[in-house]
Amino acid sequence: MSDTVQEAGQDEQSVAAGGAEQAADQDSGSMARSEADLVREGDIAGDYLERLLDLLDYDGDIDLDVESGRAVVSVDGGKDLEKLVGSQGEVLEAVQELTRLAVQQETGVRSRLMLDIAGWRANRRNELSDLGRRTAEKVASTGKTQRLRPMSPFERKVVHDAVATVSGVTSEGEGEPPSRRVIVYRVG
């Protein structure tokens, strides 16, 4: 699960930097966040979101964590929270974007924190992981290339990871956002 969390954001490039991140110049303010920095990111995000829930009169518990080099903030609670997710998770992405900006406003550094609300990402991750694995198995047996529907960076990452667990097939991205999609084909 922590592996899928890694690339959940919009910023695939900065995530792709991976290990290079550790070596990044701290003064540039780009990367290399210490555990304490990430805890602080979570705290700022938690305050920002808690106040939002208060103003909207929504019930919600906020849980803060650090996983795979990024702050993870989860909000769980009442049915109202579905409004902060949206039917396709679009509201969740917007709230995450604003929360990252609020963190950046305080720290002066771009944040890659991941926000989940009402377990939406966790559920999507399971569904997409199943989809990726089933598609990969089908391609492995039929040899027929499959094109999946357009997905967000977060969704594509989860699918790629699932396809990678099946041997004899591989996946790559095709097209430009927002219609970028995963294609799965047989190799070897």
Partner: peptide
Amino acid sequence: GKVIGRGGRTATALRTVISGV
């Protein structure tokens, strides 16, 4: 500039949240 964001991205996020809620 901050509230509008690059390419209007932040203003769009604000609109999306308000529509959602």
